[in-house]
Amino acid sequence: MTEISRRPHSERKDPHWVEWAVGIVSALLILTVMAWVGFEAITEEDQSPSFRTTIIGKNAIGSGVRVEFEIDNLSTRTAAAVVVRGEVRDGNTVVELAEATIDYVPAQSKSSGAIIFSTDPGEKAVWVRAVGYSDP
């Protein structure tokens, strides 16, 4: 005698209607997800990552001034190890330069970080932009 035959089966021959209802709802949910992903698969264009950076805050900390930024990836491709460079400019000369590396900026998503300048930019212009990335 096998072990299987000693164990009662959990599946009944006359299942409750709730089981069918759950089954049908699950099937619908899964089909929806598949349709969504399938739609993405068909319509997706192979774009290269493109970024938009916005400064969302500036505040003085012990070792200087922290400039917080957000970086949007507008494309359908994820970028990894995105290097964001911040510059304090006085006219055309760069007064100070600092960098931050963001691990991932997923497709059509946002990541955030901060750059710390040792001197207060004050009225000078602050530029923050992505200067490089790698493909994940």
């Binding site: 599946e11 759950v22 089954g23 709802v25 949910l29 899964i30």
Partner: peptide, 16 residues
């Protein structure tokens, strides 16, 4: 019992 009975009642809900 056809295979899809268990598939609908257990496997698909399990995946959800």
């Amino acid at each position: 019992t056809p295979w899809w009975h268990a598939f609908f009642r257990f496997t698909l809900p399990g995946y959800v």
